[in-house]
Nucleic acid binder design. Structure first.
Lengths: 97, 97
DNA sequence: AAATAATTTAGACATTCGCTTAATTATCTA
DNA sequence: TAGATAATTAAGCGAATGTCTAAATTATTT
């Protein structure tokens, strides 16, 4: 739990998550997006992985990262615990006839 | 944005938010819940207020705190941006006939 | 007007965080 | 197998964070 909130506390890590919405990418491609040293990005990826917000898969020389649903669900559940108090805007539904 | 994620990063502050789900409370009552000095709690309340996750209202000698919807909605919106990728469990709907 | 109560502000200290450069591990290719 | 490429691990440093005690502020009561 702590690890997840810690992970999303940093703006760079949030940007990494947003970037991965477009699909899986390897560490190098991710690092290219930022004006920051590769070791720093590597460290951020590690924290996101520990938080189970991303998953790593080694593909030969490369390591591919992608979003990990399990971590997001935990945050989502925490967030839902406040819905007693608030009603958040619901997703629009469409009924086809 | 940063202030909100920072605010929910701390476990004490998350507990304060959970505590306030049961309704508004003054600073003293909130502090009673924790084995921590009042000034520390006061500081946590300040960060939550800056993040617009809680609102403070002075009532005579007391200061009453309650959850602030506006801050939660911002976080909710951020979270929704990942729904392209994931489907989170949807609230159940019932269609009456 | 003085005493009491609720809360915040100020100052100090140890810990954690995010960043960098340098060194290391693993894989691919000529 | 040597050299290049991808990525991580290690070591170190300044800044930010969370906590405390003590002092200050604001409001109520007597």
């Amino acid at each position: 739990m702590d690890a997840k909130f810690k992970a999303i506390n940093d703006p760079t890590r949030r940007e990494i998550l947003q970037f991965l919405v477009n699909g899986p990418q390897n560490a190098g491609k991710i690092a290219e997006q930022f004006e920051m040293s590769k070791p720093s990005i590597s460290h951020h990826l590690d924290l996101l992985k520990q938080a189970k917000l991303i998953q790593a898969e080694k593909k030969g020389q490369f390591i591919e990262y992608k979003l990990d649903k399990s971590g997001f669900e935990v945050i989502h559940t925490w967030f839902q615990s406040f819905s007693k108090y608030f009603e958040f805007p619901k997703p629009k539904i469409r009924i086809e006839i």
